[in-house]
Write a protein that binds this DNA or RNA. Structure first.
Length: 147
DNA sequence: ATTCTGACA
DNA sequence: TGTCAGCA
């Protein structure tokens, strides 16, 4: 993934236009904890190309597959963060996030005992959110498998 | 002109 | 989801 993909450059108006989605809808997706666009110093939202991909995936899951927000949060919480972030087995055993999460880490606040980057935009787990509807995300990382 | 939050048909 | 108010 290129650095520019996570570069926050689109205002909510531009993002809505490019996606063919209403501005209010984009705000709802955020309030429901599905996306985390960057905020400027004046509290304006800025979306990256990757944010747009995630939103497109979310829209498909809602309109095509009929999922609701609860189902989407659950699905997003299933992203294999321990694989994406290459967590060592020891820390993974002690980490409770992957087992009890009912919402993606980027909407769980910073309370969870876990090393996080400064912002979710630069987080590799968030970057993979656009692939939640692609089962290959679950076994492509370093040949590790669930067995 | 554009976006923000909160409230509501 | 959409829209309107009152701001920044």
């Amino acid at each position: 993934m290129k650095v520019s993909d996570s570069e926050p450059i689109y205002t909510i108006g531009i993002a809505a236009k490019k996606l063919g989605i209403s501005v209010p809808a984009l705000r709802v997706y955020e309030k429901e904890g599905l996306i985390v666009p960057l905020r400027t110093s004046t509290n304006r939202r800025l979306y990256s190309l990757n944010d747009l991909r995630i939103i497109e995936t979310i829209r498909n899951l809602i309109q095509r597959d009929g999922l609701n927000f609860v189902g989407l949060r659950r699905m997003l919480s299933f992203l294999p963060c321990w694989k994406i972030k290459r967590c060592n087995p020891a820390s993974f055993d002690k980490c409770e996030v992957p087992r009890i999460a009912d919402r993606p880490c980027w909407s769980s606040g910073k309370s969870a005992s876990r090393q996080c980057e400064d912002d979710c935009q630069s987080c590799p787990v968030y970057a993979h959110a656009c692939h939640v509807d692609d089962l290959s995300v679950y076994d492509l990382i370093e040949g590790q498998n669930f067995t």
